[in-house]
Design a protein around this nucleic acid. Sequence first.
RNA 1: GGGCCGCUAGCUCAUCGGGUAGAGCAGGGGACUUUUAAUCCCAAGGUGCCGGGUUCGAGCCCCGGGCGGCCUACCA
Length: 591
Amino acid sequence: MHELAVEGSAVQHLLDQRAPLVRAGGGELGTKDQLVVGHASTLRNGRPAAQAPGRADPNDSPASRRGPYAVASVSDDQRSAAAGSLDEQRRIRADKVAALRTAGVDPYPDRFERSATSSALQTRFASLEPGSETGVEARVAGRVMLRRNMGKLIFLTIQDLDGTLQLFVSKADLGEDRFAAVAEVDLGDWVGAVGEVITTRKGELSVKVAELRLLAKALRPLPDKWRGLSDTDTRYRQRYVDLIVNEEARQTFRVRHQAVRSLRHQLDEEGFVEVETPVLQLEAGGATARPFVTHHNALDQEMFLRIALELHLKRLVVGGIERVYEIGRVFRNEGISTRHNPEFTMVEVYWALANYDDMIGLTERMICRAAADATGGYVVAHPDRPGETIDLTPPWPRRRIVELIAERTGETVSVHDPVEQLHAVCDRLGVAYEDWWGSGKLVYAIFDKKVEDTLGHDRPMFAFEYPAEVSPLAKPSPADPENTDRFELFIGGKELANGYSELNDPVRQRAMFEMEVAAAEHGDDEAARTVDEDYLRALEFGLPPTGGLGVGIDRLAMLLAGQPSIREVILFPTLRPEQPDSDEGDEGDEG
RNA sequence: GGGCCGCUAGCUCAUCGGGUAGAGCAGGGGACUUUUAAUCCCAAGGUGCCGGGUUCGAGCCCCGGGCGGCCUACCA
């Protein structure tokens, strides 16, 4: 059994190195049926098996990597994995692959012509009597999720892109050999079936299989068919498995997709142009946050991943793209929590000739439409308060931040108060501050710490009139240059959107940049460390009066999908490495 | 980053006043021509996250580490 001294092809050699599972044994199956003919040295082409398991897969446990199959030259007795273990289950499935190949059946065939999806059939044949035969032939395909083996009958439940469907397999229909082949199908395999649409005696819509084809063999077992997969870590790391077994996960990402699509439709209908701007930037501006730093080799240039979309989009408004938006990933090198992922998605919108008031209206239109399209209504579950709901029906209230501070804390404050007076207020309220903060930053700190999380629990709330000191890119209010025409939207105590009339005076903008640089020198490591000269040059060509808006897509998705954690709405959230491997060792344990 | 909690079979979970572990599903063998998480019978399946320590003896107690969750701190 072990004359694995293989034929000389390089691909074959590679396969032997990479896919020991495919070779493993076959002896145990020897008593079973015609499938077992020999081992896989009869492989006809290398390509499918090159994606063989057990390699390049960081999810393998140390045990399985060290396990007997990881070594090319193990003997048979070394190879006996514990019965029922993962290794054993994978080996049995790999043996089936080998046996199929030997029998001339490709376990990873090329394509399958599907005539109907599960939900299409469920819809079309919604009201058939039990025991019906339709005379309609269907070609269906999906992943085997359940199998009920009944002697001379087999029921398979397959799952495809939009639902599930039962396959009815009868030995009388298929004959001994082909029925036996169906019995070899494992949970998790992809199959295609051809047959008549029927209902069973119990009334279950089914395809009565005349032909069943394995479309892709699964080598790993699925999680518990009833309890599914609940370990959050595994769900995030192996999202593919999560999506296979958890309908809620699929639903969450459908909602997210609908919401994004809806935003795009709304903006497109209002004449906005979608663009893409650089992720790699020489200076990361447009927000206060620490950036990721990287390096371009050919240019020998330090670069930053963007922290916002703002500055490039406004350059485009200067360029005459008067209504412009981007839905894009931004990166902030800060903490990770249920509300923060290092990379997240924002939509930013810029609208020439409009102001912050127009942007408030646009925000309402966009989010209401997204809610309606993604959830079918305006009432959503409160993300943090079980049983409570938030009513998104517009219009939403708008309040000045100083009014909200007075209402929630009893303190009357203004950006014109002397800092000493505001320090006293902060002390009374227990709000921390730095010596070098001005009145604007102090007022904002009070709002941030004491007011924000109280907003938007019944219905969304716009807060407006933010201090200029914390709004370096916003236009000063005509009546009071210490404040700006800026708003933020709060829903469920969380900031969901931020917008303003854009600062388009290049002289004031330069002054604001220089203030930020000074703040950075004071030790504010989130402030911009450089003046973006190119952006100022653009402003000197003339930015028209412009309204701007940013909406956090992930938070919107959390709201609409009713998910309390941002990791539930990001397919592959940022996680620590699965196995810090001391052998690789080029990254120390400190960053 | 701080506090609390968790990590046991592929999955979901048990167990005990410290005496080297059980179940369901999945997997293996068998029965079954209308199942629906099919059912029934049989036999298997474990470095108890990792590393130390205490102890005659540690999955359990202690220390260190890893990963995750929740709360908290920051931005969105």
